[in-house]
Design a binder for these strands. Structure first.
Lengths: 339, 339
DNA sequence: TGATATTGGTATAACGTTTAACCATCCGTC
DNA sequence: GACGGATGGTTAAACGTTATACCAATATCA
């Protein structure tokens, strides 16, 4: 009770060698039924649990995998995490989440701790401005790694992401069909990764449709920011009637801001979000958004990781999931106004 | 490059024994400056990182600590996590988060994995209906544990929580001062822990003020639930004009629901939330709520854990943080109506 | 000058598993 | 009654660190 029981204690209690005890507990080797039962009983009686550090050191197997995200608070991430752990847990893995807060130092610390403990695998949303060393470090230590959402590292790792460009392109076309001509992209600040791809998609549609140039408005992808920035955007570009947002949070914030300004989302200005988080459906007004099923995205991510772990020699893969337009009430026909 | 470098490789490259290399890298022992530099250089050159499994096995020290929460998506938790990791990271600890989703099986798996890896410590929000065995298991294996928010386990562990009863008592008194006489408690379903304490606080105030009996209305602590349940509550108890909520989420949902019903929060019905999450301030209307500074709560939690790790023999402590009433616009004078 | 610190370092035994290699039995068979 | 093959188990060497104990030098001191 006092002293933490080890395998040797179990073995002794069952009157066998530690090797036998180990084999019983792992279900390997040729052991008679009677001793098998003895050992199991002894283990239970002593409340034995195997020390995974020792086990993984000797066997080279580690069934803990980590998920390094930019911010744990993000509800989108939360749903991805559900998908990831649901799938991995059925395979006997344990998922632990690390929060890098999009800070490279913090991220570096996290990842080094990862390497130190030789975890089984890593799911990773690389922080902004992650330097090449960091990718190299992971690669050199042979940790099975899958990058998520943000693709970088020169194809060193498997990747799971979203078809961002195609998504915003269709969102923009949808706005155009509703008659909107002056369109803005609202939210985010990063000059690489997801956001760039999304902006690209908007620009592509706009170019092909011959609409006026896309207005890009930077701000954090949060409700508060959306709330305050929408009025500034309105002031600077009064002609804008259609907005594609970098995420649902900023979109919801923008809608709230418009209401405070006496405008009606979906009538005066149409807003399209991105992610389809749970709040999107119950926001006022319910948000039109690009849905990517974060839960399914998480499952896919987990599956790719498992494949990589099982066959480390396999060439790296890229999996992009499509996003689907969900129309709700934050979009509507463009107001008839002198253009 | 190919083979993962170990301490022995570093030692060989520097022309010293592994013992010396270890001492240099850990900054212990008496080593001359020249060899010290050699070893450090060799380590850097080989891209060496220590295997923490081996290290922690031998030394008995493990600077990874885990935080097991009920749901990672909860924004309240996210802020707590920030506080926890900010403090622990300065002490060289790594924080990883486990999501039990309030499911005892999942929780059990998580905790067993914890024991297996002999982590440095555990911060733990026990899932509903956690059985005594689980507490005993942790205790028996001597993992430094601090329970958070939900106090249970017969005082086996240190605890950090909120002065729930005092908080809801003052919220109730505040409503009473505004003239509300028929008061309800909305949200949550658990029959133990936090919620029970909060309900107790309301009842205490009501008893002392001689108001009509508290109406307790169960539902999940989520926006959607608040949105739908508020109309049912209104129908069942039309006299209710003051509501104390189990959390901000259900409170915000309830406000949205009222607006949809054509009622005005703060005029027709007053709503008090709990937690003061970031959304509370920017909700429509901005939410009156009990604020507990989740970030500071997280720091406190971390500090208690550190104390416990440093002195395992210390008697267990209980730390309760006060909650402060933040008045915004979801509360107001009771409507003048025939009672 | 001999006794005694001090400095700088090494050899080796842990930590708790897993696993490859080995060794007794016993059983049937020719 | 020697031989091959199951059957059921054990021995001992890893895995990569750290800590204890020890050992050579060299420096210090009375």
């Amino acid at each position: 009770m006092e002293h933490k029981p080890k395998l040797a204690d179990v073995a002794q209690a069952a009157g066998v060698s530690t090797a036998t005890a180990s084999q019983v507990l792992r279900g390997t080797g040729r052991i008679s039924d009677s001793t098998r039962k003895n050992v199991v009983a002894a283990a239970k009686r002593l409340n034995y649990v195997r020390d995974s550090r020792a086990a993984s050191m000797r066997s080279g197997e580690n069934r803990e995998i980590g998920f390094a995200v930019l911010q744990i608070a993000n509800p989108f991430n939360a749903e991805v995490i559900s998908g990831v752990s649901d799938l991995l847990e059925t395979e006997g893995y344990l998922v632990s989440v690390l929060d890098s807060r999009d800070d490279t130092d913090r991220q570096r610390r996290n990842l080094e701790a990862f390497i130190r403990s030789s975890r089984g695998g890593l799911l990773w949303v690389p922080a902004e401005n992650t330097d090449d060393d960091t990718f190299e470090l992971l690669k050199a230590h042979g940790i099975p790694t899958v990058s998520f959402l943000r693709r970088s590292g020169k194809g060193r790792f498997d990747h799971v992401g979203i078809e961002n460009s195609a998504a915003t392109e269709s969102a923009t076309r949808y706005l155009a069909e509703l008659g909107h001509r002056h369109i803005a992209y609202l939210g985010g600040t990063a000059e690489f990764g997801v956001r760039v791809e999304r902006i690209e998609g908007c620009k592509k549609a706009i170019a092909e449709l011959g609409l006026p140039e896309l207005v890009v408005w930077n701000c954090p992808d949060e409700k508060v920011a959306g709330l305050t920035e929408i009025s500034k955007l309105r002031e600077a570009y009064p002609k804008i009637t259609g907005i594609v947002c970098n995420g649902d949070m900023v979109a919801i914030g923008a809608c709230s801001g418009m209401i405070r300004m006496g405008l009606k989302p979906g009538r005066d200005i149409s807003v399209v979000g991105f992610d389809d988080v749970q709040d999107a459906a119950i926001a006022t007004p319910p948000l039109t958004t690009m849905s990517v099923s974060p839960y399914q995205l998480g499952r896919k991510l987990a599956r790719v990781a498992l494949d990589r772990i099982r066959d480390p020699e396999m060439p790296t893969t890229i999996s992009l999931m499509p996003a689907e337009l969900i129309t709700r009430e934050s979009t509507g026909p463009a107001p008839k106004e002198a253009d």
